[in-house]
Computed example of a mutant assay.
Amino acid sequence: MAERTYNVLFICTGNSARSIMAEGLLNHLGKGRFKAYSAGSHPAGKVNAYALLTLDRMHLPATGYRSKNWNEFAKPDVPEMDFVLTVCDKAAGEVCPVWPGQPVTAHWGVADPAAFAGTEEASERQFMDTALTLKRRIELMLALPLARLDTMAIQREVRDIGKVQKAPQ
């Protein structure tokens, strides 16, 4: 019996950096078991160049991303989400659309690397630190025995993953 594919939507306000990196990371690390998407409550309209550079430096695809509104994923004709994860505090506090189905929701807030003001080198480091934190959280989610857990246990585990602050260096 083939293992099912889980759909995951990463949400951030601007959908230009954190949610884009999370989408790229999960699509790679999930190896077909997960299909990741990203969106924003107030999309920036373009993807941050440092986010794409970070994905490239992690040897992940850095093309094909776009900044889009979360309403695109609240329509009846889109894939039903199994997980909806916010990656910024501002988006976590907003009133979200009603997602078709009953996805597991959690907040995995990380600092906005795009808000960092510093040298180009320091900015690149901020983006990489953010990507590594997201990568660690995604790895923890991938390690969950989803087929053996009930919905409440999955909800608790996925929420707890959001409390993991820094990736090991």
Rank of each mutant, 00 (worst) to 15 (best):
G24H: 05
C12T: 08
A143D: 15
T119R: 06
P113H: 08
L53D: 15
N7W: 01
V158N: 03
D82R: 02
G32C: 11
S41C: 11
Y65V: 03
W70S: 01
T133C: 11
K75P: 01
T133K: 10
V104E: 01
L146C: 05
A143S: 13
N15M: 05
R4H: 06
A167W: 12
A91C: 05
T151C: 03
R137M: 02
R125I: 00
E139Q: 15
H42V: 09
Q165D: 11
L149K: 09
L134Y: 04
A51P: 02
T86P: 02
Q169W: 11
S38F: 12
A22S: 08
Q102T: 13
H42Y: 13
R4D: 08
V78T: 15
M1I: 10
A2L: 14
E94I: 07
P113K: 11
P97K: 07
F34E: 01
K46W: 04
V87N: 03
K46N: 12
L140C: 14
G118P: 06
R18G: 01
K31S: 14
I138R: 11
P76Q: 10
L29Q: 10
G109M: 01
N7F: 00
D82F: 10
P103Y: 02
Q126D: 04
D112V: 05
T5I: 13
A17Y: 02
V84P: 03
A92L: 04
E80L: 13
G93L: 08
K35T: 12
S67L: 06
A22L: 05
G64Q: 11
I138T: 08
L25V: 08
A131W: 02
A91P: 01
T105I: 13
Q165L: 13
A114Q: 00
R66M: 11
K135H: 10
A62F: 09
E121G: 00
R159N: 14
S123N: 06
N69G: 07
K135Y: 09
C12S: 14
T151W: 07
A44L: 15
T133V: 11
L132F: 11
E121P: 00
K31M: 13
F116N: 02
C96L: 15
N27C: 08
D77H: 11
L132W: 10
Q102C: 07
I154F: 09
E124A: 14
A106R: 04
L144H: 06
D82T: 04
N7V: 00
V84N: 04
M81W: 00
A39E: 05
Y65C: 03
G24R: 04
G45S: 07
I161T: 03
C96H: 15
G40T: 10
A106S: 07
V98E: 14
T5E: 12
R137Y: 06
A92W: 07
D160Y: 08
M1L: 12
C96S: 15
R57V: 02
A167Y: 14
F10V: 01
A91V: 07
Y50L: 14
A106G: 08
V78Q: 15
I11K: 04
G101L: 02
S67C: 06
N7T: 02
D129C: 09
R159D: 13
R125D: 12
L146K: 09
T130W: 10
P79Q: 08
A131S: 06
A2E: 14
S38Y: 09
C12P: 00
